[in-house]
Design a binder for these strands. Structure first.
Lengths: 226, 226
DNA sequence: TTCACACTTCGACGGTAGACGAAGCATCCG
DNA sequence: CGGATGCTTCGTCTACCGTCGAAGTGTGAA
């Protein structure tokens, strides 16, 4: 018996390799132009245009025109969540990328997962926050402790502002490379922002990697590591 | 730049209408035979066989031989999670099923979401548990309260047993029909089991609907409703 | 042993969707 | 203005994949 929304159209959108590459690129959280996405997918601009209109029609991405460019981004964090979930299943099922890119080690070490930190250092931060007793997790379930309510404002994070957002304040996100949890949600996003602001790290321009400076990494560790 | 596991193969598996129907059927949590799945998808046995071997090869489902039947089930709750996420995105993007089945109202009212209760009554239960103060949720984040640690054992649910499972004890799951949260995780599954055990409801044989008896529904409401 | 049934394999067919070249609009820049 | 750039539309080609009929394997029932 048929019930529920049909997932075939949505899945089919993500099921084409070219489109999948585009979506993966957009998982960086950045808005990209049609041409950039075409390069990302390794196809011509014409073909990309067709794919992009399908993705937009399907509600997975949204495009805004700016001058003669057209910038695309994922239409929401639910799409990003879905894509990460799919990557998780893919990783478990052994569908690893056949040709790991040159940036692969960096990407495993630290990368953005839509708008928060993932990879080894993401997991490290999650563990560190737990050890400090400022967050408490049980299974999938993460909460800010009373201790945390004092801790985060001292880092320059205003929890009351974050709580106003409709998205969950904190949640865990299973890391495909580490098979461990890292911190997602608006708190995760705010922490990554702080890392940028402090100058500890910057985004790689061509991948999802987050590049820590030597001093940034040691400060990061002194704050979170064992 | 390519990074991460490639989602295209996984998505493509779910992207075919016939396979999507099979997966949706398996979302009921029941194991189904190849022939049942063929009927579900509206295709011949030969075609179904080909699809099923692809799904199995892709790691989305697992099959076991029993006599001359072969039973298939989803390979894990992560796959179920992924499918529900996709339905959520599909619902938001307006990809509703063109031809709602006859069981649709029942399915909207109460259905299984892999192994826990979803639909109107699922949301009702979630709200009721919150109002009773036995669970506390903030965004995506759900916890059992101290009050809950006394409450659930009285219902015949042993929390320490549930905690041993590797899956999260409780988490919320966004309902595609209600756009509200209901309770997933091993606690959600245990609650649905209790509902069956008490004789309040039984599974519909042909759909994901959960059929409450008149008295079962009133007992359910007296327990959870406002 | 013989038939019935569940499922798989093989082979052929057909529709569809992704690919690009060429051409057409817009927009910015000198 | 005129040329360059970014993107879209059109038309065409090709390759792949889902589909089923027919035949094959294995299991259970009579």
């Amino acid at each position: 018996m048929k019930d529920g929304p049909s997932l075939a159209p949505i899945a089919a959108l993500a099921g084409d390799p070219a489109r999948a590459n585009m979506l993966t690129a957009l998982l960086s959280g950045k808005a990209l132009t049609a041409t950039e996405l075409a390069n990302e997918a390794g196809i011509t601009a014409q073909t990309a245009s067709s794919h992009l209109s399908k993705l937009e029609g399907g509600g997975l991405i949204a495009g805004v025109k700016q001058g003669r460019h057209r910038y695309f981004r994922l239409s929401g964090s639910d799409v990003a969540d879905m894509l990460e979930k799919m990557m998780g299943v893919a990783a478990r099922a052994g569908h690893l990328r056949t040709r790991p890119g040159p940036s692969d080690p960096q990407v495993r070490k630290a990368r953005v997962c839509y708008d928060h930190l993932a990879g080894e250092m993401g997991v490290e931060m999650f563990d560190g926050l737990s050890r400090l007793g400022v967050i408490a997790s049980r299974g999938d379930d993460v909460k800010i402790t009373r201790k945390g309510e004092a801790f985060f404002p001292k880092m320059g994070i205003d929890l009351s502002v974050l709580a106003q957002s409709r998205r969950p304040l904190c949640k865990s996100c299973l890391d495909w490379s580490q098979r461990r949890s890292h911190l997602a949600g608006s708190l995760g996003a705010a922490l990554l922002d702080r890392i940028y602001d402090e100058g500890w790290a910057m985004r790689d321009r061509k991948s999802r990697a987050v590049l820590f400076s030597r001093s940034g990494e040691s400060k990061f560790r002194s704050m979170f590591a064992a």
